[in-house]
């Protein structure tokens, strides 16, 4: 089977790759583009460890084909920080100890960023439902919710950074 040439944008930069027609975007990211920050926890859309954005919309990259990236813009965990400056969500995850093993963390940060871009002022319940597709087996979500609410407040400019 011949590979397909795909032209896309990854984390704001132009990117090209060759992939099999049936190859998932997650495999392309991890194996071809060497962006291993997106994780595979299930490969079936149930855990959210592979969360990325497609033109700003949150998707499970394990459920997306690599060829579907053609002409679109992909955002991954590797593009969340600006240079050596962490995104406030990343900083709040660290300050609140919102990770233990850290395997769910890249997917959660991508998901939370997408949430706060859409809804800068979520209630705790809204935030809980938004991340319900991102499994974390370590933390019980408590500190993750605190980090989300705190990051949202900071991004709204309500508390000093």
């Amino acid at each position: 089977m011949s590979k397909i040439h795909v032209t896309t944008t990854v984390n704001g930069e132009p990117a090209e790759f060759l992939c099999e027609p049936q190859e998932s975007m997650l495999d392309v990211l991890r194996d071809t583009l060497k962006l291993t920050g997106s994780k595979e926890g299930c490969g079936s859309g149930d855990c959210g460890a592979c969360s990325i954005t497609l033109d700003g919309r949150l998707v499970c990259s394990c459920l997306m084909l690599g060829v579907e990236a053609e002409g679109h813009s992909i955002g991954t965990i590797e593009g969340v920080a600006r240079g050596d400056e962490l995104h406030p969500i990343q900083r709040k995850f660290l300050e609140h100890a919102a990770l233990q093993c850290g395997f769910c963390t890249p997917g959660l940060i991508v998901a939370v960023k997408a949430l706060l871009e859409k809804n800068p002022n979520p209630t705790e319940t809204e935030a809980r439902f938004w991340i319900a597709g991102n499994l974390c087996r370590c933390t019980g979500y408590d500190k993750i919710l605190r980090a989300i609410m705190d990051a949202a407040a900071e991004l709204r400019g309500e508390v000093a950074a």
């Binding site: 962006l35 994780k39 991954t76 965990i77 660290l94 300050e95 100890a97 990770l99 850290g102 890249p106």
Partner: peptide
């Protein structure tokens, strides 16, 4: 802040796969 935290919030941490 934990010493390995930076790697884990930026996707750099190397897990088994």
């Amino acid at each position: 802040v934990r010493p390995d935290g930076m790697d884990k919030v930026t996707g750099k941490a190397q897990f088994g796969a």
